[in-house]
Every structure is written in C-alpha cells, then in structure tokens.
C-alpha cells in the first residue's frame, strides 16, 4: 500500500513528463511494458519484507504462523499503540532525536569552523591537522572504540547522552570538514577580502559570509550525519545501559528480547520505527539522495 501511495504521489508530481500519453504512441511499447513490468517485479521483491512486516503487525501469532502471506483480517492500530506504550518507543525516539540533533549541530558548527580555518588561512601545522582529519576518513570504528569505552567509563561519561554525542560528533567531523572545505575553496577570495577591507572581524566573516554560502554543503553534511547518528548501534550498545537513555536501535533490541514471543507486537514496533523513516524519505528523497551521494563519492 505504501508503494501505491508513493507511486501516485510521484506520478501526479510528474504529469508534465507525459509518461501516460507516451505509452500509446509507438509500436516499441511492448518492450516498454515488459521493461516496466520487470522494474515493478524487482521493486515488489525489494519492498515485500516491509509489507509483510506491516501486515503481520495486525495479525495474531497463530495467523502469522498459519497464513504468512494473507492480508490481515482487520486493521487494528491498538497493537501499535500498545507497542508504542509498553515498548517505551516514544522515549527511545526522543533520545534519538536529542542525540542526533545535538551531534548534527555540533558537526555543522565545528566542521564549518574548521573548514573555514583550513580554507582561508595558511598556518603552521595546517597540513598536519588536515592529514589527521583525513586519516579519520579511513579509521574504522574498531581502531578506537576499546580505549574510548574505558576512557568514557573512567570519566563517568557512559550512561549519559554525552557518551553518544561526543563520539558521533567526532566520527562525523572528518567528512564534514573535508566536504565543507571543498565548498569554501570554490568561493572566490574577493568576497572575503571585500569584507575584510570593510573592517569585518574574522568571526563576523565566518558567520555572515562563509556560513550562508555553505548552506547547501551544510544541508548535505546534516543529512548524512543525521542518518549515521540515528542508526548507530555498536557504541550505543556499549555505552548506554540505562533504559531511559537508549536510542531507537538499542531500545528496539531491548524490546525485541523482552517481547520476543509476541510477534504481532514486535512487528508493530518495527513498523512504528520504520514508517516515519519511509515518509521522511519520500518527502525529502531528493535532498537525501543528493546528500548521501555527495557524502560518499566526493
């Protein structure tokens, strides 16, 4: 059903492409129909697990066992409400929002400042610092999480939101600095020089010239930082034991081990955390796709 909904939305949004009229024009269209059919089959195969998840959330255990492919006999969102409440999903989502929001803001601000520094100034140690950040692009999580966890434990940072915000920010910075520097490098020097001659301070130049110019770059960085923070699992598993501070991935795991035998409820919880992401994606798909492509290819 989500497929249909999204289909229609996009079709109506692109009526000017005149796709439907084109369909009756030339004899080549049989190949076209086959081609479209092939795409539909592939899409359905890809989408099916998610449809199955949503259907199953409305079923009882025995219905899930007996008729796995059948449509649910009734759509009762009571299970979703129940899953939301007993599963503390609201709490987990709030935690995810806070942690992701704080990390993304910190990445944007610190990353933009560092990129500004690298792009506009030459100074002692510049290459060293850039090299270290570039190394950060390659370093796997495994190279630091062991010592990080003992450090965080000793500093009593574990079981606070900082335990996630700090590493998420640090992990997001290298790519953010790199990308934002590329954007800033493309800005003509004269823009900054003019402001400098007008007597603007460096901070002022950063704030009122660099940041606004960086807006598309910041959006890109925000998107992939947000996605990776939102979905991060390993550190969240290691650093947060307090149920009240868990984010969606670890919270959902806790939920799934607590209600493992109530499949309908579990599918409800999975659906609850999945659907908003799909909606967000459908609404912002252009920005998200651009952000992710830029983030990985550049």
């Amino acid at each position: 059903m989500s497929i249909d909904a999204s289909n229609k939305q996009f079709d109506s949004a692109r009526t000017h492409t005149a796709k439907h009229h084109a369909g009756r024009r030339t004899p080549l269209r049989i190949a076209d129909v086959l081609f479209t059919a092939a795409l539909i089959v592939i899409a359905v195969v890809f989408f099916f697990p998610m449809l199955w998840m949503v259907f199953s959330s409305f079923k009882t255990n025995s219905a899930i066992f007996a008729t796995p492919f059948a449509l649910p006999t009734e759509i009762d969102f009571g299970r979703w409400v129940e899953a939301f409440e007993v599963g503390h999903i609201g709490q987990y989502a709030l935690n995810s929002v806070i942690v992701t929001g704080a990390s993304v803001l910190a990445i944007l601000l610190l990353g933009a400042a560092a990129a500004f520094s690298f792009s506009r100034y030459r100074f002692r140690g510049r290459n060293l610092f850039m090299g270290l950040l570039a190394l950060g692009l390659l370093l796997p999580l495994q190279s630091y999480f062991i010592a990080q966890s003992t450090m965080f434990t000793q500093l009593a940072i574990t079981d606070t939101r900082w335990a996630l915000i700090i590493p998420y920010t640090a992990m997001g910075l290298p790519l953010a600095v790199y990308l934002l520097k590329v954007y800033l490098d493309a800005v003509p020097d004269e823009l900054f020089e003019a402001a400098r001659i007008d007597g603007a301070s460096d901070l002022r130049i950063f704030g009122s010239i660099a940041l606004p110019l960086l807006r598309p770059g910041l959006a890109t960085v925000a998107i992939f930082s947000a996605l990776s923070s939102w979905n991060e699992f390993l550190l969240a598993l290691l650093y947060i034991q307090d149920d009240a501070l868990k984010t969606i991935p670890t919270g959902l795991l806790a939920f799934s081990s607590r209600y493992v035998t109530d499949y309908g409820l579990l599918f409800s919880a999975l659906s609850i955390v999945t659907l908003p992401m799909i909606v967000i994606y459908i609404v912002f798909n252009k920005q998200i796709v651009e952000g992710i492509t830029a983030g990985s290819v550049k």
């Binding site: 434990t153 009593a156 940072i157 574990t158 606070t160 598993l237 034991q241 081990s257 607590r258």
Partner: peptide, 18 residues
Amino acid sequence: QDDDLYQTIGLPNLLNGR
C-alpha cells in the same frame, strides 16, 4: 536488561558507569 546482555556486557558496564 536483556538477560544475556546483563550477564556479559551489561552489568560490568553498569558497575563501572556513572
């Protein structure tokens, strides 16, 4: 906590935590 998690990672982390 989840039983297995508590027995392995969970409790030691909790005890050393804040």
